[in-house]
Amino acid sequence: MNAVKRIYQRDRHIFRLIVMIVAWMIFMAITRFDKFYTVVNFQTMAGQFPEFGLMSLGAMLCMITGGIDLSSVGIANVTSILLALFMNAQAAKSESGDISVAMIALVFVMAVCIGLVCGSINGLLISKVKIPPILATLGINQLLTGVCMVVTGGNAVSGLPAAYSASINNKILKVVPGKRGTMQGLIPVQLLFFVVAALLVWFLLMRTSYGKKLYMMGTSENVARFSGVKVDRMLIKTYALSGMLAAMGGMIMLANYNSARSDYGNVYTLQCILIVVLGGVDPKGGRGKISGVLLAIVLLRLLETGINRFPQISSYYITLIWGAVLLLVMVLNYFEDHPIVKRK
């Protein structure tokens, strides 16, 4: 009980998110226990959320600077399309018609590079040309989506080498009993990518001078400049980092859909912002924890999957519930800042 109280006092926002998750888990346990609490169900969730989870991590970093990144989806799609074409070309060249593991590793290195370049362009436009982040990233998103359209003509790139999906859209740690005595994997590979990225971001924010400077800069860019923080370089780094995370998200999307297209995941743009704000990151910058963002991701995923377990309820209700949760959290925060005082 004391532990609960401590969490409440330390951060009410995090506390509320935890309460909502627990309440929803209990509700699902009561109503749909056997359909919800299955290994497969949790595996599916864990394999899917890294797509937008990775983008949300990047969006969080940008929002801590007081900016916003609306280009994640464009970066993700341009990465996945270009690399899907690349892998297809490589597979066609090879005798087996497939690609090697080393090639997959190379592809991921290339993905990171594409993300780095796109993100750095965002950063340059914001820090050097001084375009407001919302417009710079919006324009770059449109530009990249356009590039995708030009490259693909609006069609999906499919027929990927089997090895790619087989290695990324897979599960490791073979401990789950499957059919006919075989053992199946427990942990989805996509989740590993996300966990590594989340740990990395956590480490950057909490344990490095970059993180400290990022929060300070988000609080006041001007004071940071007067304190000797290289603000321009910090901005470029941050948007580049966000670009790299988005590119990784694109690679996960490529594995999950086994194809790439210019309009995949376009709901994620606003969804990532929603997650980040729901996670308690201040849109004005300077405030926000990765724990809040992780909880928000988990909460949204649990809500969506949970509702899908009720066949009579349209899955479209999920967006309604997301929006309602966001507004509810905001209003609760409002009343925390403006306590209702009884007037005489």
Binding site: Y215, T219, S220, V223, F226, G286
Partner: peptide, 13 residues
């Protein structure tokens, strides 16, 4: 206020 100090941040930071 606008150049010297990050007001909302801790004294230590």
């Amino acid at each position: 206020l606008s150049e010297g100090l990050f007001l909302p941040r801790s004294i230590g930071d």
